[in-house]
Amino acid sequence: MKMITFATAAVLALSTPAFAKITTGTSVADMTVVDSNGASHNLSDFAGKRVVLEWTNEGCPYVKKHYNSNNMQDLQRDATADGAVWLAVISSVPGKQGHKDNVQVVNWTAQHDVAATAVILDEEGTLGHAFSARTTPHMYIIDEDQTLVYQGAIDDNSSSNPATIDGATNYVREALASLDAGEAVAVTDTQPYGCSVKYSR
C-alpha cells in the first residue's frame, strides 16, 4: 500500500473553468499534481495501465454500503489482480467527515481490508475539482491510452441500503469487463449518487 499526499496547492495542466464536468473521452495524460515535497505526479506515469479512481469518505452511508458489504473491496481486488491501478481519493478537508491523515489511512485500510493500489489525500480538493468529483462514491475509469472512459456511479441502485447491492448492475465491473474484451465501454456516463464530497467552501 502506497500513500500519496497532495498537501500543497496542486497545479493542474488541464484547466477546467468553475466546476465544469470533465468530458468522457478526454485525455488525462497531461494531468499533473505537485505534492508537498515538490515531486510531481503525472497521470501519464500510469500510461499503459488502466486506472480506476474512487472518491471515498469512510463516514458516508453510501460508502459504508459498499465497504461493509465488501462490495468495494472485492471490486478493488478483482481490478488490481487484472493489472489496474486503483486510486482511492479522499478530498475531505481537515475537520470534515472522511478526512484522514497518513496514520488514519493505514488503520482504515487495515481494518477494512482495502485493496486499493494507493490512497490519495487530496485535502485541497484539487484532484476532485479537476475531475468534478461530486459524490462519495464517485467512480472514474481511465484506459491504457489515458482516456477517461467511464465516470459516474458504482452501480444503478442509488439507495444507501446494502441489501440493494444484490441485483444492481455494477457499472464499473461492466466497464472493466468491456475493456478486457477489447470492446468499447457501453455505459460511459451515469449520474453518481451518494454524499457530497466534503470540499472546503
Binding site: P61, K96, Q97, C195, S196, K198
Partner: peptide
C-alpha cells in the same frame, strides 16, 4: 430520507 448538513444520515 437522507438528511444532510456537513454529513449525511439516512
Amino acid at each position: 430520507y437522507l438528511v444532510c448538513k456537513d454529513i449525511c444520515i439516512p
